[in-house]
Amino acid sequence: MHIFVLDHHPLMSEMLVMLLHRIHAQAHVVTAHTFKQLNALIDKYEEADVVIMEPQSIGCLGPLSVAHIAERLPHSKIIVITDANLDETNNRYLQNGAHHVISKKDKINKITTTLQEILHPQSLNVNSSLIKVDILKISKRHRQLINMLGQGYSNSQIAERLDISEHTVKVHFYRLYKILGVSSRLQALNFAKSNGWLVDPMNA
C-alpha cells in the first residue's frame, strides 16, 4: 500500500506515519509538508492508494486543493484530517472528492480506530486490543520519564533527578518505545501528549 501524507506540522506528520505503520506495517508512507511537495510526489510516483491531507497546509486552498488532488489521483482514497470545525467543513470536503474527514481534535485512539476502519479493517480487533494492553503496561517510572521528557530534560538530567544511571534511563526508554510501538523520543512524547499523559511530575 502506498500512502502520501500532507501536513505542515512535523509532529502531526510524524504521528500519522507512526499510526499508519502500526495499522499496516508494510505500507510505504511518503510525507510532504506543502501542497507543492505533494504534487511533486504525484509527479514522481504517479499513483497512491491513499492520500491523507491537511487542507490548511502551506499552499493549500481548502476544498479546492482536495478537488485538485482528487482529479490528479482519481483512483486514490482521499482522507482529509483537519482541526477545523467538521460541522462547517465536512460536506465541502466530501463534495470536492474526499472520501473521509477526520478531526485532529479527536484523541489518538479514536484517530487510530478511524484509520483502521478505513485502511485495514481486518486488523481492527487485533490492533485495538494491543493498544489497550500497551497502555496498561505503562509503569509509574515510565510516566515519570515521559513527563520529564515533556519538560525537555536530557537523559543525563533525568538520571540525575531520579538518582539512577544514564544507562538505566536508556534501558527504560528502550522498553517504553517497545510498549508504545515508537522509535524516538519525539514519537513517544507526541503519543503521550495525545493521550493526556503529561501531568505535574510531583503527581506522577
Rank of each mutant, 00 (worst) to 15 (best):
H2Y: 11
I3W: 11
D7M: 14
D7I: 06
S13V: 09
S13M: 12
S13H: 05
L19P: 15
L19T: 06
R22M: 10
I23K: 00
A25Y: 15
V29H: 13
V30D: 08
V30N: 04
T31A: 14
A32N: 10
H33P: 00
N39G: 15
A40L: 10
A40C: 12
L41Q: 12
I42S: 07
K44D: 13
K44L: 14
K44W: 00
Y45W: 13
Y45H: 15
E46N: 14
E46T: 14
E47P: 01
E47H: 14
E47A: 14
A48G: 13
D49Q: 13
D49V: 11
V50L: 09
V50E: 06
V51P: 10
V51T: 07
I52Q: 04
E54V: 02
E54H: 10
S57H: 05
S57C: 10
S57N: 10
S57K: 08
G59Y: 02
C60F: 03
A67S: 09
H68V: 09
A70W: 09
A70G: 07
H75K: 15
S76H: 02
I78A: 02
V80R: 02
I81T: 06
I81W: 00
D83Y: 11
D87Q: 15
D87W: 08
E88T: 14
N90M: 04
N90W: 03
N91C: 00
N91I: 03
R92C: 08
N96K: 04
N96D: 11
G97E: 05
I102K: 08
S103P: 08
K107R: 11
K107E: 11
K107L: 05
I108M: 09
N109W: 00
I111H: 06
T114N: 05
L115S: 04
L115G: 01
I118E: 04
I118M: 06
H120K: 04
H120C: 11
H120Q: 07
P121E: 00
V126M: 01
N127Q: 05
S129M: 07
L130H: 01
I131F: 08
K132I: 11
V133N: 07
D134T: 08
S139N: 05
R141V: 05
R141M: 04
H142M: 09
R143C: 03
I146L: 15
I146F: 02
M148Q: 10
Q151Y: 09
N155H: 14
Q157P: 05
E160G: 07
H167F: 10
H167D: 09
V171G: 02
Y174C: 00
R175H: 14
Y177A: 13
Y177M: 14
I179F: 05
V182Q: 12
R185T: 06
L186D: 03
A188C: 07
L189G: 06
N190E: 13
F191H: 07
S194E: 12
N195G: 07
P201D: 02
